[in-house]
Design a binder for these strands. Structure first.
Lengths: 219, 219, 219, 219
DNA sequence: TATGAATGAGACTTCATTCAT
DNA sequence: GATGAATGAAGTCTCATTCAT
């Protein structure tokens, strides 16, 4: 990954379809060097912040050298970028599954909304890092990440529009604003939620999606 | 603030009930040196992030020297801490006003909710910096800030509990979780909102408070 | 000198006409920190090359810390740039003195030519560094240095043109090419000359200027 | 060149009188891997400097991998060393041809002098790299290169001495110094000359050799 | 009050080279 | 013959903070 990838693709994790030449990549417990680097980077960034974590911290945690890291990633930025990408891709895929289901739009929106809360909390580190540190990325990478997020926003908005067209949801609310309203509680959750607290991701997902759906169907 | 203040009090802005010896603090346009420092720090922190802004950047923008800054503030941290304090105090004061009003709890909560959206957007820089950079403060200062925010949370929660007790609001929702639900959209707004976009703070405040109240009174 | 100076002016050596505030700059044998840095940088760059000399080498030789160096210079580049500037300014001043003298053009050109050889050899380190390392400067600084050198070239060329106009020098040679011909031997001298060799700068200056003048007045 | 060659001999270009086992070296357009590496190294070193060019840059330009480069060359230094060798050998051969001609010494010196200017400009990249980067070579290789250059210097000097002995050239000039005088303009030409400028190598060679010969025959 | 010189630790990154395959 | 993963040392620069004046 010496060249900036256009897509959000974690290096070293691709199927690598083909001949393997040169020294065999080292693995620990079946995890490759770039995988281990991303794992530890995610944890450390969430713990101490992106700026508070040095490259040295990351490579020490992953048990490799700095040189190895720069063999797989162009920069410290790149680690952040890949972490974002992983979450973004996963959430997009899940959303598309919910959208495509056979069910009333109300039910599909409720399920998708609960699910995004759950996955945000199950990846609470990545999401926390995301909103704290996006502004530290290079301009190019910020733009790429925003583009991905925009696509997600629009897919989700489609459900709301569908609900309004079919008369299920109120129409006095801009669909865009409704999306921003709901994703506020999703993206802000990492600020107050703790894994060892009393509430499970599932419970929170239920509550938040219910509150949101009830406000859309009010009146 | 050479001496650690117990409360979040901006130095140089106090009624100045004390030592007034030696030279009068220099002012420009009636603004004192610490005021100018905080102003420019807030703008720069929002623009380039707390870590991306050097002390040199701040003092250059404010037209003073580093020595002057360290005369009024103990550290770069202190600037951030004071910026938080200003917003927190203001929002707390406004919330208390709404709580104390003579009106049905539904109306007081709706007004307070719309208002906090408006003031968050009118101080969009401070709020953005807040959630991006809180983790960069020293542990002590983080604790102090969280304490303040907790007091705010509890005051706001009081309105919800009052509404539930009087039968106005549904009771199947934990008041704490309801607060976190609503403040998600408030605190996340700086991520997507722009001052030169189509929606005014007032419009957004109306929409968000309506959606929230409708979900509380649903069923 | 936090801001790139438009002119080639060694920082910390300016008359500094005015109030002196803050800590007094430290000096050793009456030499300020930036002066010492430039002195040792020049010697080290000539000895080990610009790339072969680390910033650490320079500050250690000058007896200061890296931080101090970056207080006075923006970059390692800047050191090189200032070294060039010192030589360029000195040579330009000397050339202008020779041009302004009351004497036949033949005599003024001979004297100026001998002198530039002598000063090049007396500053053999700076000149050697100049031609080895100019390409390592930032594009902007390269352009500035070239501009200065161009001015020097044109001033010197003026003497040749004057000699051609008055019939003293042959006219079948382009003045520009004659300048490049002569400055070849000047700028190349640092490659082969050694201070402890048999020939003094003065002897070499005499020989080279004589050869050059004889070829201009030939036929 | 896995074994240190005593002479400056480009590897992979030898008549290949030896081991021809295993796979045939891959060629592109009839050029072997080491030839392609040297070609691109020369161009890149001239463009961005020896230090500014990484081994990765060179192998990427040549379309091979780092491993392949280290199969043919011991080090990055080696690339530079071979580039020098090519030019030095060629110029020595040409000089010997001119020396051996049947013609008056004045004519042979003029022809040799014009020719060395032309070949220096036709190999402007190599010559520029030579004088910029010689000091970056290992001490051993520097000594070897200097030895080669010394042989060239002495051969050329022989022509001047011959001219002085036969009474054609003035005798008040040290032959060594005369050589250094003339090779100044030769070696410095890459600093100011551009292939797309108004003057051809031939025109410059004529002018420079004429000026030099005229100064030797003056009086 | 205010200056700005000086510190010193640490950050990110580059790169020639080695080596198992 | 050739690959490319991995190393490890060094390099340039930034920056919050201190302190003599």
């Amino acid at each position: 990954m010496t060249v900036d990838a256009p897509a959000l693709d974690p290096p070293g994790t691709r199927p690598s379809g083909g001949r393997r030449k040169g020294r065999t990549p080292s693995t620990v417990d079946g995890r490759t060097v770039p995988e281990r680097l991303l794992d530890h980077a995610r944890i450390l960034f969430a713990e101490k912040g992106f700026e508070g974590t040095s490259v040295q911290d990351v490579v020490a945690a992953a048990g490799v050298t700095k040189g190895a890291m720069y063999h797989y990633f162009n920069s410290k930025d790149d680690l952040l970028y890949e972490i974002y990408g992983t979450v973004l891709r996963m959430q997009m895929e899940r959303l598309e599954t919910f959208i495509a289901q056979e069910a009333p739009v109300e039910e599909r929106l409720r399920a998708a909304s609960a699910d995004v809360v759950v996955t945000a909390l199950e990846n609470v580190e990545s999401v926390a890092v995301f909103f704290r540190s996006l502004h530290l990325l290079s301009v190019d990478k910020q733009a790429e990440v925003r583009r991905e997020r925009r696509r997600y926003h629009e897919a989700y908005r489609g459900l709301i529009i569908e609900g309004q067209r079919t008369g299920l949801f109120r129409e006095d609310i801009s669909p865009d604003l409704a999306v921003d309203y709901f994703f506020g509680c999703v993206h802000h959750a990492p600020v107050w939620w703790h894994a060892d607290g009393p509430l499970s991701p599932g419970e929170i997902g239920d509550t938040f999606s219910r509150l949101f759906l009830d406000s859309l169907t009010a009146r």
